[in-house]
């Protein structure tokens, strides 16, 4: 039996998989709300942060906010296929429009690991501007910048670079709920001080619980 089974959890509460079950904490900023509001207002967004800052989790949560509708298209740069906006627009929409290859209007496109997508592909959205509502580029390369000529297209740039002690405390409260005292406050601070990102911290919490709770 694992430590979390002993505490009554069916699954590991410190799993690092991006999921929509747990809240996100970004130094009191409503990053999720800001991104959704921007996309709805037809603004393109660039979201940057090193590995483990919560980018994929944000993507999953936004997709959930939209109810997983077909008007959201998720593309990962490590996909087998090239980024093709024409194909995306044709594949979005209802079965009727897909069957007759009618281009859908108002598609929102998420491009994960955008810095890995060739510029010629990533920025060819210009040819479909009347069909693409907004774009969210996500990059783990914090030095990634929007190339010249396209900067004005990205009205919102968000850097996930500030993981605070308060965020760490909130993560523990959110994930452990009533059992949050399992990790004493001073232990949380100690684990936070050794962590660079939320993921580092979550992994450290798991290790702490495994070593201190397992009978």
């Amino acid at each position: 039996m694992t430590w979390y089974n002993e505490l009554g959890y069916k699954k590991n509460p410190f799993s690092i998989k991006p999921n929509t079950k747990y809240k996100l904490f970004f130094d009191d900023k409503d990053v999720l709300g800001l991104i959704k509001k921007s996309l709805e207002a037809n603004h393109n967004v660039l979201l940057k942060g090193v590995y483990g800052t919560g980018k994929t989790t944000i993507l999953k949560q936004i997709i959930k906010l939209y109810g997983g509708k077909r008007k959201i298209f998720y593309y990962n740069a490590f996909s087998k296929e090239e980024l093709n906006y024409d194909k995306i627009i044709k594949n979005a929409g209802n079965i009727f429009s897909r069957l007759f290859k009618i281009k859908s209007a108002e598609v929102i496109v998420f491009v994960d690991e955008a810095h890995k997508v060739p510029i010629s592909q990533a920025f060819s959205y210009k040819n479909h501007e009347n069909k693409i509502k907004s774009i969210l580029f996500v990059s783990s390369d914090t030095s990634f910048i929007i190339p010249k000529g396209f900067e004005q297209d990205f009205q919102v740039i968000i850097n996930l670079d500030n993981f605070t002690q308060k965020d760490a405390i909130n993560i523990v409260k959110d994930r452990l709920g009533e059992s949050q005292d399992i990790i004493p406050h001073n232990a949380i601070i100690e684990l936070y001080n050794k962590s660079y990102t939320p993921r580092d911290f979550i992994l450290s919490c798991e290790s702490y619980c495994k070593n201190n709770i397992l009978s």
Partner: peptide, 11 residues
Amino acid sequence: PPSIMSRVGSK
């Protein structure tokens, strides 16, 4: 890649 190592942590 670092993206995988970041998920491994100290495991």
